[in-house]
């Protein structure tokens, strides 16, 4: 049973939804606070997450390790696949190829994004309170903004389409009708979660995030 790809592939599929899929939805909802409630809402969201117990454990076992396994094993899965969308121009076959392309894009994007945000907090260059202003800087740069939109769309597509495939791989949606209905639901999830992320990216461009940043800076300077 050693080196059995059945278990690694199954674990890959599971981790993509639990915890990673859950994480992306929570992340989208937290960011959306920036759009709905402005800098204060966003910083409340950040504060809420940081008030959770055993944060380092949650981060390591709930995000970093699953992300690394899912990402690295996923690159191997993508390597093992051919693309034959030229010969078989079916929607599902396009989604199959897109799932692999967006997986690789997401892999690159997540590393870059984590470097720009979470790693900067680890390094002590910024604080959790300054994440809003960091995002303001990133989203105000037109190139970064476009790259972030592409990265976010890739990640959310990969999650939504992955959810559809997860339901099949675990034997939940079996017949063609169940799979068609779940594809509509997953497409809906793609639209909604993408909207959460893109609207928050747009919101981060607002000057109030810059001002909030300087206000925080003033506070810390006074303190």
């Amino acid at each position: 049973m050693k080196g059995n790809s059945y278990f690694s592939r199954k674990l890959h599929s599971l981790l993509g939804i639990i915890p990673l899929g859950g994480f992306i939805v929570v992340h989208g909802l937290t960011n959306y606070q920036a759009f709905e409630r402005g800098p204060e809402g966003f910083s409340n969201g950040v504060h809420f997450i940081n008030s959770l117990p055993v944060i380092p454990l949650l981060e390591i076992f709930g995000i970093y390790l699953p992300l690394l396994f899912h990402g690295i094993y996923g690159l191997y899965v993508a390597y093992q696949s051919n693309t034959n969308t030229g010969r078989f121009k079916y929607g599902r076959n396009w989604a199959f190829t897109a799932q692999r392309v967006t997986g690789v894009l997401t892999f690159v994007f997540v590393f870059w994004h984590v470097y720009q945000t979470r790693i900067q907090v680890y390094l002590g260059h910024i604080t959790h309170e300054e994440l809003g202003s960091t995002m303001n800087l990133i989203a105000s740069n037109p190139t970064y903004f476009v790259l972030y939109v592409i990265g976010v769309l890739a990640a959310v597509f990969h999650f939504s389409n992955g959810l559809w495939a997860f339901l099949i791989s675990w034997g939940i949606t079996i017949g063609p009708k169940a799979q068609r209905i779940s594809s509509y639901i997953c497409m809906g999830i793609f639209v909604i979660v993408s909207a959460l992320f893109i609207l928050s990216l747009v919101a981060f461009r607002g000057d109030e995030f810059k001002e909030a940043a300087s206000a925080v800076l003033t506070l810390t300077n006074i303190g």
């Binding site: 080196g3 790809s5 059945y6 592939r9 079916y90 599902r92 199959f96 791989s169």
Partner: peptide
Amino acid sequence: LMTDGGIEGCGNSQNCVRA
């Protein structure tokens, strides 16, 4: 089917059912 190269190799492109 639960060993190397078994059912987990399916990537749900669903070309098979069409072909």
